[in-house]
């Protein structure tokens, strides 16, 4: 039945980590998705039910709720891997997901495939796909023998599984007693925005240094809201303080691959392109006709963003009726 184990550490702010539905969907496309969920005792039943609703045919649960960072969840994931004996372990590549993958790989001495964007099967077993050097290369890799532990880039996989009937089985975990750091407190990001998550958004409007100020960056936010898009930014805009660092797209920010990437006032330095050039459609607005972003844009507009963007936002609003 080719069991595929999906590691789901609870998000510190509550709920399952991002990318859960696609990880279970990817698992279902090549085998039988089995999830292991860790988190506080009172949240586990609901988290397990959610995992089942995304298509996990069996959900193992383990209580992890102390102040210790990393090691206790790793104890649970190790127990699940030894029980399930999966062919492949899939983990959404969030912060907690990467932590879980790294720790499990070290314990099992199992190979890691990092930041995968696809998973298939050939006659010899599981094959995973990577998009390397900012999308310049497509690479396939596999394990010499299993299990392979793969972290999955968020927003890279369209597969979704049918909801499964919850079959929840508490896991027996022996505490390893490994030395761990202590969490003193957690502060959730106060998110007032109803905009989509940059990592998984189908449409992204990104602003660069050309916006000139934090106040004027609001033009990007208005356009994004009109399109139902996430807000992105170049490193220059982040460094200038126009926008929060979490919006940064590029080599040192988030790598994105949306249906639409609308770049405004972004020249398109190679490090920015490395994070967005696999977008299906790229539209760029910049006043410099020689900006490298135009080399990869499906539609490039040379002009003043301060007149073009308001006109575009109004035109889109008018089309919505």
């Amino acid at each position: 039945m080719n069991p595929i184990l999906v590691l789901l550490p609870a998000a510190p702010a509550g709920g399952l980590i991002a990318g859960t539905a696609e990880a279970i969907g990817a698992a279902a496309s090549i085998g039988t998705p089995i999830a292991v969920v860790t988190g506080p005792a009172d949240a586990l039943p609901e988290l397990a039910e959610q995992a089942a609703s995304f298509g996990a045919v069996r959900v193992h649960t383990a209580v992890v709720e102390g102040p210790e960072l990393g090691a206790p969840a790793a104890d649970a994931f190790e127990a699940a891997a030894r029980l399930v004996q999966p062919e492949l372990v899939l983990v959404p590549a969030t912060v907690e997901g990467r932590e879980a993958a790294g720790r499990l790989a070290a314990r099992l001495r199992a190979p890691i495939a990092a930041d995968i964007v696809g998973v298939t099967r050939d006659e010899q077993g599981v094959v995973v796909r990577h998009s390397v050097y900012g999308g310049a290369y497509d690479v396939e890799s596999a394990a010499t023998y299993g299990p392979l532990i793969a972290t999955m880039r968020l927003g890279s996989i369209d597969d979704r599984a049918e909801a499964a009937t919850p079959d929840v089985q508490p896991l027996e975990v022996t505490a390893s007693g490994r030395r761990a750091a202590t969490i003193e407190r957690f502060e959730p990001v106060t998110q007032v925005s109803t905009r989509p998550d940059l990592r998984t958004a189908k449409r992204i409007v990104s602003g660069g240094r050309g916006l000139g100020s934090k106040e004027q960056f609001a033009l990007i936010e208005q356009l994004a809201d009109t399109l139902g898009a996430a807000v992105g930014a170049s490193r220059a805009a982040v460094d200038a303080g126009y926008v929060d660092p979490s919006a940064q797209v590029g080599q040192t920010g988030t790598s994105v691959s949306p249906d639409l990437y609308l770049a405004v006032g972004i020249s398109g330095a190679i490090q920015h392109r490395a994070g967005m050039q696999t977008a299906k459609t790229i539209v760029a607005i910049d006043r410099d006709a020689s900006a490298p972003i135009f080399e990869i844009a499906d539609l490039g507009v040379v002009g003043d963003l301060f007149t073009i963007v308001p006109q575009l936002t109004a035109a889109l609003e008018a089309r919505k009726g």
């Binding site: 190979p111 094959v127 396939e140 890799s141 010499t144 499906d298």
Partner: peptide
């Protein structure tokens, strides 16, 4: 067990599409 690379291919470079210069209606055209 180790992770091994099975294949590597260079993705064809993205080519530029249409480039226009704003003549007052670029927002509408986008």
């Amino acid at each position: 067990p180790r992770s091994i690379m099975l294949s590597v291919a260079e993705r064809p470079p993205r080519s530029a599409g249409t480039i226009i210069t704003d003549e007052g209606d670029a927002g509408e055209r986008i």
